[in-house]
Amino acid sequence: MKVIFLKDVKGKGKKGEIKNVADGYANNFLFKQGLAIEATPANLKALE
């Protein structure tokens, strides 16, 4: 799953980066902790 990092995550990505991560990692950790959002077309456009 492609995500946009909202904060730096050690060993995974930095704020503003768009990366592929495992679905479970994104859903169970990144999204719940507010560290990333899904890289949907709307979210990508808002990032610009």
Rank of each mutant, 00 (worst) to 15 (best):
M1Q: 07
M1G: 02
M1P: 04
M1I: 15
M1D: 02
M1E: 02
M1C: 12
M1A: 05
M1W: 03
K2F: 13
K2Q: 11
K2D: 10
K2S: 10
K2I: 13
K2P: 06
V3M: 01
V3C: 03
V3T: 00
V3R: 00
V3K: 09
I4P: 01
I4T: 01
I4G: 01
I4E: 01
I4K: 03
I4Q: 02
I4R: 02
I4V: 10
F5P: 00
F5L: 07
F5W: 01
F5S: 00
F5A: 00
F5T: 02
L6C: 10
L6M: 08
L6N: 00
L6A: 01
K7V: 14
K7F: 12
K7N: 08
K7T: 13
K7E: 12
K7Q: 14
K7W: 09
K7R: 14
K7Y: 10
D8N: 09
D8L: 02
D8K: 04
D8M: 01
D8R: 05
D8Y: 07
D8E: 07
D8P: 04
D8C: 06
V9P: 00
V9S: 02
V9A: 03
V9M: 04
V9W: 02
V9I: 09
V9K: 00
K10L: 14
K10V: 12
K10M: 13
K10H: 12
K10Q: 12
K10I: 12
G11M: 06
G11F: 06
G11N: 09
G11K: 07
G11Q: 04
G11R: 05
G11H: 07
G11S: 06
G11A: 04
K12D: 08
G13V: 06
G13S: 05
G13E: 04
G13I: 04
G13P: 01
G13D: 02
K14P: 01
K14E: 07
K14Y: 11
K14V: 09
K14C: 14
K15Q: 11
K15M: 11
K15I: 09
K15D: 01
K15G: 03
K15N: 05
G16K: 01
G16T: 02
G16I: 01
G16P: 01
E17L: 02
E17P: 00
E17I: 02
E17G: 01
E17F: 03
E17K: 03
E17C: 08
I18N: 00
I18W: 02
I18Y: 02
I18F: 03
I18D: 00
K19Y: 07
K19Q: 09
K19N: 04
K19D: 03
K19C: 09
K19A: 12
K19W: 08
K19I: 12
K19S: 08
N20S: 12
N20P: 08
N20F: 15
N20Q: 13
N20R: 12
N20I: 15
V21C: 07
V21P: 00
V21F: 09
V21G: 00
A22L: 10
A22S: 14
A22V: 08
A22P: 15
A22W: 10
A22N: 14
A22K: 12
D23P: 15
D23F: 15
D23L: 15
D23N: 14
D23C: 14
D23E: 15
D23S: 15
G24R: 11
G24Q: 12
G24K: 11
G24C: 13
G24L: 11
Y25R: 05
Y25M: 06
Y25C: 09
Y25A: 05
Y25G: 04
Y25I: 08
Y25D: 07
A26V: 05
A26N: 05
A26D: 08
A26E: 08
A26C: 08
A26G: 06
N27K: 15
N27M: 15
N27V: 15
N27T: 13
N27E: 14
N27W: 14
N27L: 15
N28C: 12
N28D: 15
N28Y: 09
N28V: 06
F29Y: 13
F29Q: 07
F29L: 09
F29V: 13
F29M: 07
L30D: 04
L30F: 03
L30G: 02
L30I: 03
F31G: 05
F31I: 14
F31H: 04
F31E: 06
F31S: 05
F31N: 07
F31Q: 05
F31T: 08
F31R: 03
K32A: 14
K32E: 13
K32C: 13
K32Q: 12
Q33R: 11
Q33A: 11
Q33F: 15
Q33T: 11
Q33H: 15
Q33N: 14
Q33Y: 15
G34Y: 07
G34K: 10
G34F: 06
G34I: 02
G34S: 06
G34M: 09
G34N: 08
L35R: 01
L35K: 03
L35Y: 11
L35P: 00
L35W: 09
L35F: 10
L35H: 04
L35G: 01
A36I: 07
A36Y: 01
A36V: 08
A36Q: 00
A36L: 02
A36C: 04
A36T: 01
I37D: 02
I37Q: 05
I37L: 11
I37E: 04
I37S: 03
E38W: 04
E38L: 10
E38C: 08
E38G: 04
E38D: 04
E38N: 04
A39S: 04
A39T: 01
A39F: 12
A39H: 05
A39Y: 11
A39C: 08
A39N: 02
T40M: 03
T40Q: 04
T40E: 03
T40P: 03
T40V: 04
P41R: 08
P41K: 09
P41N: 09
P41W: 08
P41V: 12
A42R: 09
A42H: 10
A42D: 13
A42K: 11
A42C: 10
A42P: 08
A42Y: 08
N43R: 08
N43G: 05
N43L: 09
N43H: 07
N43Q: 06
N43C: 07
N43A: 11
L44R: 07
L44V: 12
L44Q: 07
L44N: 04
L44M: 10
L44H: 04
L44G: 05
K45V: 09
K45H: 13
K45G: 09
K45A: 13
K45Q: 10
K45T: 10
K45R: 13
K45N: 11
A46F: 13
A46D: 11
A46E: 12
A46K: 13
A46S: 11
A46Q: 12
L47M: 12
L47I: 11
L47K: 06
L47S: 07
L47F: 14
E48V: 14
E48L: 13
E48I: 13
E48T: 10
E48M: 13
E48R: 12
E48Q: 13
E48P: 08
